[in-house]
Design a protein around this nucleic acid. Structure first.
Lengths: 253, 253
DNA sequence: CGGGATATTAACATAGTGCGAACGAATCCG
DNA sequence: CGGATTCGTTCGCACTATGTTAATATCCCG
């Protein structure tokens, strides 16, 4: 699961995929609209769109290009069913036990992708498109816990690639300070965030392993007025680590 | 939703996507394995894999490339939530009413993709990978009903692209015979299949429209010993057409 | 430790892409 | 209703970026 960014990389494919993602994000685009977004000649864009059409990644309704339903089905195949089931169980049970919100995120390419969260059942991003599903490592509980287990060199590669954008005031944006925190975390096996991601939000997180490497992170969080630091560090951290252990056992088959 | 296959098409992107799909189908591939499947130099394949890695469509675990979880999330965005909900309702209700199996499929690029079927709850292709999710038009009830509504020229384009593979003995594989059937169907608004798709299976199907064009097809089917031709043509066809009407109303918002 | 398979990098020639511009086809507006 | 504008598609050239072959590096097995 290492990601090294060297080696040859095909620009044609890259821009095709970029265009695909733009169409996805905008829920459909026409050539002219795309032309306004991307600084490339119309004719070029046209070739890319046409290729994506022929490969059935897009569909054309009148003049606007839309993501195909086939893309959704391809995406489904990318899900590893067992992980999804196990993670969902773990999250629901943890949420139940603690009364707080639990999440499992997949660790991939230096970021965390939400697989299942207890708040929004079934991960349907229903309605509002503003729902976030991808997180940084430096400002999330599970993320910091994961970073603490990686070699410093790897941490650096990730930070180089993604940076450490400030989410709110308390977000750590200085590498040295983050390194210090990671050293603290390393022994405990879990990390916390204290309003570093969103106002009033505190959380505990820990990595989940399978087959020797980190596949994601489990976390519990809630409003600061309900969770004080002792509860976070003791009660919740314990429950979290138990849940992680159960998950890892379940994955071990 | 027309698909015309002319215009420039980028070979680089095409092979990249082909490789992506191969990785998907095989649930992970190593470079050497891929090399055995695809007749291209290893180094070329390597560039493609590397590009897909960098774009986060793949993930590398040891030496095998796997579809990323991010791909699954991208796919989710391709789903139009309203359609999914409406189709699911329609299918479940129809299955309940008739006691037979109902399906809704999306019409795209000359094929039908299963959105929801009453037999397997929630469209999870759990377990067996052999589960089919993509159908031809010429040997399915909904497919024939759709073809009957298209202009002959369009029908030809689709048949040219996909052919008319024989599924079992009774499958229509002759264009002229299919044309005749389509003429029959045209007036009725629904089509039937009689063991043309699978042994013992009969079904009725009809197109579902939204905003003027065909977006998919609804169908009911079951074993021939339980469904005789009169029930199929009268009872089930009626219930089907009612369900289609309800779906189209629901979609009209 | 060494041999065979596998992955990665390097260098080169040309196919294939990017580009600009010209053409057509819609669509808007007075 | 028709001129003007926006949008989509096609064409041909230049040159970049890809495919390829070959060499190097890494891994994995006994």
């Amino acid at each position: 699961m290492l990601e090294t960014t060297n080696g040859r990389t095909l620009k044609t494919t890259k821009t095709s995929l970029r265009i695909l993602e733009l169409v996805l994000e905008h829920d459909g685009l026409t050539l002219a609209e795309l032309d306004r977004i991307v600084d490339k000649p119309k004719s070029s864009l046209h070739s890319h769109l046409n290729t994506l059409l022929e490969c059935r990644y897009l569909v054309k309704k009148d003049r606007t290009y839309l993501a195909s339903f086939r893309l959704a089905e391809l995406g489904d195949r990318a899900r590893r069913g067992d992980l999804e089931a196990i993670a969902t169980d773990a999250v629901e049970r943890l949420a139940e036990e603690t009364g707080e919100e639990a999440n499992f995120t997949v660790f991939e390419h230096g970021r965390l992708l939400l697989l299942h969260g207890s708040s929004n059942q079934a991960t349907e991003h229903e309605g509002e498109s503003g729902f976030r599903t991808e997180y940084y490592l430096h400002n999330t509980a599970a993320g910091k816990a994961i970073l603490a287990e990686l070699e410093r060199e790897h941490v650096d590669r990730i930070l180089d690639e993604w940076g450490m954008p400030r989410e709110i005031e308390a977000t750590v944006t200085d590498r040295e300070r983050l390194y210090d925190q990671l050293d603290d975390i390393a022994g405990k096996g879990y990390a916390i965030i204290d309003e570093e991601f969103a106002p009033g939000l505190v959380a505990v997180g820990a990595p989940v392993h399978s087959d020797g490497d980190i596949i994601g992170g489990l976390s519990i969080g809630g409003p600061k007025y309900r969770i004080n630091m002792t509860r976070l560090h003791e009660e919740l951290a314990d429950q979290l680590l138990d849940a992680v252990e159960r998950m890892e056992d379940a994955l071990h088959t």
